[in-house]
């Protein structure tokens, strides 16, 4: 921990160490990408299921979904990680599961951000104009058919910007998973820091996370352009490549970020 000066004094050797450690760092990036991708997928499933359940016809379903969402929103990601990693194995039969670190990470990330996502899904289902619901009724479409054929495709376009932000949140949150022994990007860089003794490696880590976040932004921008085009609210992707590189807004609507 030698502050600013150490950085310049040891820049050359530090770079060499970084290059030498690149295979391990790439392993770490792989773990981070895996946790972020699988966690994101689980979060998406949870968000859609519990988002829809919150507008279900039966009060019991709505209340159960509400409790689930409030519970996982309310108890903090780190607590959930620790609980799955440290408490769960200590519980008596039939629990007492010792889960692999990746499973713990994916579960905690998916449950936590999925709960936030459920609010986003609920909010965007509510933002589909009332007239659409009325047209469903007027055509006597079943509520199921109306939900999946009419409402969800439109809500999808509305929810993508917020889901994009949440997925970036999830990527950022994943940097904590080394506390439950998943050897991710953060962990590998911390190892390099251990050797170089300076904070140099963390500059690299910040940059790597930043680039990973941009990958998410581009994927989600593409989905958003496509979804908007499908409901006639914007050009086709082939005519608007520039949209892919639009910086994300940070305000998550429909239940706010965290």
């Amino acid at each position: 921990m030698d502050g600013v000066i150490g950085f310049f004094e040891k820049l050359g050797p530090n770079l060499e160490i970084l290059v030498a450690r690149m295979p391990q760092i790439l392993d770490g990036i792989q773990a981070t990408v895996l946790a972020t991708a699988l966690g994101g997928l689980l979060a998406l499933v949870i968000a859609i299921v519990f988002g829809i359940a919150q507008v279900a016809k039966y009060a019991a379903v709505r209340i159960a979904a509400r409790i689930f969402v409030e519970f996982f929103r309310g108890t903090s990601l780190v607590v959930q990680l620790f609980w799955l990693a440290f408490v769960l194995p200590q519980l008596p039969y039939p629990f007492g599961w010792r889960l692999a670190p990746l499973v713990v990470a994916v579960l905690a990330l998916g449950l936590n951000y999925g709960a936030y996502g459920a609010e986003v899904v609920r909010g965007s289902i509510g933002s589909v104009p009332r007239g659409q619901y009325e047209a469903i009724s007027a055509l006597s479409l079943s509520p199921m058919r109306g939900m999946f054929r009419v409402i969800i495709p439109q809500a999808w376009a509305l929810m993508l910007p917020s889901l994009s932000n949440l997925w970036i949140q999830l990527l950022k949150g994943s940097a904590i998973v080394s506390t439950v022994l998943l050897y991710d990007l953060y962990f590998r860089v911390e190892q390099v820091r251990d050797q170089t003794g300076t904070w140099f490696a963390f500059l690299f880590a910040l940059l790597a996370y930043y680039l990973l976040a941009w990958v998410i932004v581009i994927i989600m921008n593409a989905l958003e352009v496509r979804a908007k085009h499908k409901i006639g609210r914007g050009p086709a992707l082939s005519k608007s490549w520039g949209m892919l590189f639009r910086a994300p807004g940070s305000v998550v609507k429909g239940g706010a970020l965290v």
Binding site: P129, G131, Q132, A135, I231, R233
Partner: peptide, 15 residues
Amino acid sequence: TQIGMVFQHFNLFPN
């Protein structure tokens, strides 16, 4: 199903 309705704001499905 035997009743049809046309709305002020059309309410076509945009998707």
